[in-house]
């Protein structure tokens, strides 16, 4: 995250957490940190934080932030302006959560365009002269709009990661990032061969595959799992959360370094093992968390 904002450890970093197009799950995760949240509040000078503070950002001409965290994707002209204003008024911008880093679920709308989506859902609403926010042609990740100092993916990021991040902000200094995949953290047993050449669905009758559920790699059992192409971190130092719950990874931390398109990454892996790609019922759905950065063409 670059050099420390200030060497003076007694000075609290002025911080705001602003919500764009998203579900507030990142905020909910921060608010679930328990007592640590109290310490974090003491360590930071918290200003606007939409969910729990009745303060508006940039409330005066000279409001500047040491850290400005954005959650959610950039979907409207108003959000775009807010992010640009934020860049001018802060030393560090942090994209928090997969919506901010990769577009997240809101960027699934890029398969059609958010304007089109709205027209289909609200067909009779007049849009000319509307007082409602105007959509951008594409739902964007934060780094498509401004320079971002730190990307923290996760849907939502793990509590440990959030604590580490906010603590690092409170006490200054950068924080390390890892580059491992979900598989690197997964305790399931891999044998290097697939049990089936046809993908299985997570529906009664085909799931669970056998009494051995919980031991064998779900992907090798034939269940589409995005573990190989997805950045680790959801379970912090422990096993990945979805795998721990016996369901396959869906890629919510975004792609592992070196992979820019989770669909292509998975298609390569499946093909290499002779698994039929016809079992991919919704190929675009494999990129459901990373629909910004022009991943969907229409």
């Amino acid at each position: 995250m670059g050099p420390p904002i200030s060497e003076d450890k007694t000075k609290r970093a002025r911080t705001a957490i602003l919500w764009l197009s998203g579900c507030a799950g990142c905020e909910a995760a921060i608010l679930s940190l328990g007592r640590s949240l109290i310490q974090l509040y003491q360590g930071l000078l918290m200003d606007a934080f939409f969910l729990v503070e009745d303060r508006l950002p940039f409330s005066s001409q000279d409001t500047h932030y040491d850290y400005l965290l954005f959650t959610g994707a950039v979907a409207t002209e108003g959000q775009l302006a807010l992010v640009e204003e934020g860049r001018r008024r802060s030393k560090r911008i942090i994209a928090l959560g997969t919506c901010a880093t990769h577009g997240g679920i809101p960027a699934m709308a890029n398969r059609l365009g958010l304007g089109e989506v709205a027209k289909e859902i609200n067909p009779s609403t007049k849009r000319s002269g509307s007082v409602l926010p105007k959509f951008l042609p594409d739902v964007l990740a934060l780094d498509e709009v401004v320079t971002v100092d730190l990307l923290v993916p996760g849907c939502p990021p793990s509590p440990k990661e959030l604590k580490g991040l906010l603590k690092a902000m409170g006490h200054m200094g950068p924080r390390p990032t890892g580059g491992k995949s979900v598989c690197d953290h997964c305790p399931m047993e891999r044998q290097g061969r697939f049990e089936t050449k046809i993908l299985r669905r997570l529906l009664p009758g085909s799931y669970p595959p056998s009494a051995t559920l919980g031991n064998r790699c779900l992907l090798e059992e034939g269940f589409l799992c995005l573990g190989p192409v997805t950045l680790a971190g959801c379970g912090a130092d422990g096993p990945p959360l979805c795998l721990k719950a016996h369901v396959p990874c869906r890629g919510c931390y975004g792609p592992v370094p070196g992979c820019h398109n989770q669909l292509l990454g998975m298609a390569t892996i499946l093909s290499t093992h002779g698994v039929s790609l016809e079992g991919l019922l919704d190929p675009g759905g494999l990129n459901r968390f990373i629909g910004a950065h022009g991943i969907y063409t229409r």
Binding site: G25, A28, S32, C155, L203, C234, C242, K244, V247
Partner: peptide, 12 residues
Amino acid sequence: GKAIHPVSIVIG
């Protein structure tokens, strides 16, 4: 499985 955005409730 996950507290926020749970995953363990499956069909059936």
